[in-house]
């Protein structure tokens, strides 16, 4: 959130929102994806059954992966915002780095660091694209017409 988005909840509560949004995105998108994939991989006549079993087996897991990622990211984002007292693209990059690192923590420090750097770079690319889009699509702010400077001894308006 590098642009001061005022259409969202304040920080501790937005974590719940992001958890749920990421989980729903992963689960619904995973349902569509694995539904098609399961139907294509099943023999003819069993396409619907195969599709349903693929959805049941894989969509919640994908939703969980998305949800954990998004929720951790949002938590780190809030923590970084609270620590730095700033809102700029570095927040997202730092929290992406921390998220990638903590998700790969069990694979060892070396692997965690690699994953953290990868996630940070990914978020950096996202933020860079966002800044570029903002520059491209933002309208120039029109110049404000300044009123005349008041005289030194202000006379009453209604003479």
């Amino acid at each position: 959130m590098s642009h001061g988005d005022h259409s969202r909840d304040p920080c501790p509560y937005v974590i719940l929102n992001d958890f749920g949004g990421a989980f729903a995105m992963g689960a619904i998108g995973g349902g569509i994806w694995h539904g098609i994939k399961g139907a294509r991989n099943s023999p003819r006549g069993e396409r619907f059954v195969g599709s349903m079993s693929a959805i049941k087996a894989r969509a919640p897991v994908l939703g969980g992966n998305f949800g954990v990622w998004g929720g951790l990211f949002s938590t780190f984002d809030c923590a970084v915002k609270g620590y730095r007292q700033k809102e700029d693209p570095w927040n997202a990059i730092i929290s992406g780095f921390l998220t990638g690192g903590s998700l790969a923590l069990r694979a060892g420090p070396r692997s965690a660091f690699g994953s953290a750097v990868g996630c940070g770079i990914l978020l950096g690319v996202f933020e860079g694209v966002g800044v570029l889009m903002n520059r491209m699509f933002a309208q120039p702010i029109p110049q404000m017409q300044l009123p005349e400077q008041a005289p030194a001894s202000p006379s009453p308006a209604v003479a």
Binding site: M1, S2, H3, G4, D5, R8, V14, D18, G21, A22, M25, G70, F73, S74, D77, P89, A92, G96, L123, F126, E127, V129, G130, V131, M133, N134, F137, A138, Q139, I141
Partner: peptide
């Protein structure tokens, strides 16, 4: 989503405060 807002939700103009 906040982590995608840099990509998708960035078209809002900054308000001068």
């Amino acid at each position: 989503m906040s982590f995608l807002s840099g990509l998708f939700g960035a078209s809002s103009e900054p308000i001068e405060k």
